[in-house]
């Protein structure tokens, strides 16, 4: 076995607002405000399209491709596609902006961990940015398998994130507490 090592840096995309507590709070506030301006069907369609986009990305990885192939060749794939088609779910989600579900999850997580969250909350409302022309691009049709894989990837990330956030203060498994300072024994009618 030999080692191969590399180094990468995580940075803000060029030309964007960048990730800071203020911009993440503004984004969350805008997302919540936008819910009042669109129908429930559109909101769910946008989330569904977002999961499908994530699923398409995950399908390019070895693990995702393996899972996709397994689903595709089983009854799940055939039934899922039939139901999807009959319920006209492609038409429902057609052309809708795919919500960046993973970015949103990670941004919300970063807000929970921010040390200046209280300070920034006091300065609300902060104007949020809109997607703009980027959101007007053509989006491929939403496919059942893409959504299934997207939900799988999102759920894994969600579980890992919650565990990672809790890990710093997580008590060990099998931990117990004992009441101290009471040497009088157990009293009461049941255990007498």
């Amino acid at each position: 076995m030999s080692d191969g090592s590399g180094r990468v840096r995580l940075a803000d995309p060029a030309g964007g607002p960048g990730r800071s507590t203020a911009t993440l709070l503004a984004s969350l506030q805008s997302r919540l405000a936008a819910l009042h301006l669109c129908s429930g069907a559109d909101a769910i369609a946008s989330l569904t399209a977002g999961f499908a986009k994530l699923g398409r990305e995950v399908s390019q990885t070895a693990e995702g491709a393996r899972l996709r192939k397994a689903l595709e060749t089983s009854r799940v794939g055939a039934n899922g596609r039939s139901i999807w088609k009959k319920m006209r779910l492609t038409e429902w989600t057609c052309g809708i902006y795919p919500a960046p579900v993973l970015d949103q999850l990670r941004n919300d997580l970063a807000l929970l961990l921010a040390d200046d969250a209280e300070e920034m909350l006091a300065s609300l409302p902060i104007p949020g940015e809109m997607v703009g022309f980027e959101g007007m691009g053509e989006t491929p049709d939403v496919d059942f398998l893409d959504v299934a894989l997207g939900l799988w990837a999102f759920s894994r990330e969600l579980v890992r994130s919650v565990e990672a956030v809790a890990s710093a203060t997580l008590p060990p498994r099998g931990d117990f507490t004992a009441e101290t300072g009471n040497d009088n024994g157990v009293e009461g009618s049941i255990l007498r």
């Binding site: 805008s30 902006y97 809109m130 997607v131 959101g135 691009g137």
Partner: peptide
């Protein structure tokens, strides 16, 4: 719907360098 997409709130992301 595409017009609606342009008005969607932006979510800042990350790039790998």
């Amino acid at each position: 719907r595409r017009l609606q997409g342009a008005a969607a709130p932006a979510s800042p992301g990350t790039v790998m360098i």
